[in-house]
Design a protein around this nucleic acid. Structure first.
Lengths: 341, 341
DNA sequence: TTGAAAGCGCTAACAA
DNA sequence: TTGTTAGCGCTTTCAA
């Protein structure tokens, strides 16, 4: 690659007729430069189109970059979340860089390490598949914030979550209020340290509401195995069962939508034959106009708060913060109101 | 952040009782190290858990990182593409880092620049909103490959695309073969340098096939304005028209799916009342089991080829490569065969 | 208020 | 085959 002569801090210094350290100070808005020198340098910077080399900066100072580690890009909730993170990060003067971890612990560890190696100023983990201990290890090395990962007791990193338990309760209570009793839940397999995962908390909410309403006998949870979850196949099989419930609460819109599609496809009358409630209130749900009733957690808010939390840690906070954001039910047309028989 | 004493190349050298350059050579598999030295050093590396500092590396050598600039994360086609890029990149020893450019030229320029600043070894641009000249400018500074961007004449960067013209022709020919004549197309607004965009090429394919079949009189193209395209609103309005065609070819599944949803919602009988063909054969389409007939361009292949092309440029190729990948029609149930009247 | 100079961790001549 | 050493572009003492 023909570099020609790259414009460095030296070029700028020469052009402005000052020292490199003077330029550096202007760059960082450091204290102790006269107004005239500053203007002078800034003119040269603009004239030469100078941009500081991030790699060189990283060796001594900051990179003004935060790494965002995503486990599953395919979930439509994630883009919205990233948008929220970026918005707040940019507001604070940081850019974000995304790594994709394909829901694989080893791969995530590797990526997070590589973000460390790149001297990023902070790390946001979205629904990581690592253990709290592993994340802790990153937390002591660089500011770290998790989204969609529960670890209330963690001290070396922060967590930002929707109130999953309460959200699930809203969903189930809504169904109960509509007269449903036989309410099942669809969620993911919980192989390891389930208490960190959002779907575990949503299941707890489901169980709590069922119990509170005296419906313990109807508690019925279906687990899809996470990475290769063939929701469609499962849904088709499931919908053939002779003893279907009247309502299903799905841990995520992604699965709820597939359940709805499958039901329609085999000619089920919705919501008469089956009521469905999802979680996320994701944009695809709206896009498809399926009328899916869902628990809304604002991805934008989650992202904003996550970035703000991370920045505050970058700026020196050392005590951990664990935030729970409000959820609310968005009722559409996928739930049938039962007439008391 | 308590750093303690970070393990550097010096630490390793001291531990192994060799020089730093010896360690560096082992790290890079450089020529000229004895087997025993190599083993010795590798043992120390493992023992100390040493990881080279990417930032420091970037100052002299390579970062082994490829930047991927995405304009629109919300398009479900993108995750698949990224997956393909990552797969091939990793195979060649590179990791990828994603930047999101929210379909905004200035923002994309800024991000691409920042990737340059980070000394990334190469750049993949996915459907960029920049002009060929602007991309050219990056191309002379670092190896650059574009996906979903047509610029056959570009010399300083490569392009990888599906054969959009042919793909569109497959779609339209399929409709014509099924007996349709009044075939409309839905695509995006073409404000600037349209010939770079994939949807322009798809429109050309549509027009070519219509003309070839003597159906010029039925040529009818609808443009959605890109960033704020409210496809649903448009679809509802459109579906009310008194003179609907019998078939619509959509430039992308994303819009085709919304058109289908809207049609269903207002009670249209599909495909009897309206045949629809999309483009991308995206996974959501399948997920939702809408039976959408679509033109398949393998996102995985596109990604693989893009990464391979980029790597070959990183390795020294200077002549430009412009690749067109095969498309094929995946017929499902969204097209009705007309009985000749 | 300014500038000279010492590194940050690494790579790559060049010497030994 | 191995080690010495001069930078890469920047930040940051410390003197001037």
């Amino acid at each position: 690659m023909s570099k020609k002569t790259r414009v460095t801090i030296k070029t700028v210094a020469a052009d402005a007729g000052v020292s490199v350290s003077a330029v550096s100070k202007v760059l960082r808005n450091a204290y102790g430069v006269s107004e005239s020198l500053r203007e002078n340098v800034q003119a040269s910077i603009a004239k030469l189109g100078y941009r500081p080399n991030t790699a060189a900066r990283a060796m001594r100072g900051k990179t003004y970059t935060i790494g965002v580690l995503v486990s599953d890009l395919a979930n439509p909730f994630v883009p919205d979340l990233i948008y929220g993170i970026r918005e707040a990060a940019e507001g604070a003067g940081y850019r974000i860089m995304i790594g994709v971890g394909r829901a694989d612990r080893a791969n995530e560890l590797d990526l997070a390490n590589s973000m460390l190696d790149q001297q990023m100023d902070g790390l946001v983990l979205i629904g990581p598949h690592m253990s709290a201990d592993e994340i802790m290890r990153f937390g002591v090395q660089m500011p770290t914030t998790c989204v969609a990962y529960h670890a209330d007791e963690a001290t070396s990193f922060d967590t930002i979550n929707a109130d999953d338990v309460r959200g699930a309760r809203l969903a189930v209570d809504h169904l109960i209020a509509a007269g449903h009793q036989r309410i099942s839940m669809v969620t993911l397999d919980q192989f390891k340290s389930p208490e960190n995962h959002v779907y575990y908390h949503r299941e707890q909410g489901y169980r709590a509401s069922m119990s509170a309403a005296g419906l313990d006998q109807y508690i019925d949870v279906h687990h899809l195995s996470d990475p290769i979850r063939r929701t469609n196949d499962w849904a088709h099989k499931y919908l053939q069962s002779s003893d279907l419930p009247t309502a299903v609460f799905c841990w995520s819109d992604l699965d709820a939508i597939q359940l709805m599609s499958a039901a329609r496809q085999i000619g089920k009358d919705l919501p008469q034959e089956l009521s469905i409630v999802g979680f996320d209130n994701s944009s695809v749900g709206e896009l498809l106009q399926l009328g899916l009733t869902s628990v809304s957690q604002s991805a934008l808010d989650l992202g904003n708060v996550a970035a703000e939390t991370l920045v505050s840690r970058i700026n020196g906070r050392t005590s951990a913060v664990h935030t729970l954001l409000k959820t609310e039910l968005v009722a559409r047309t996928s739930v049938m109101t039962m007439t008391p028989s």
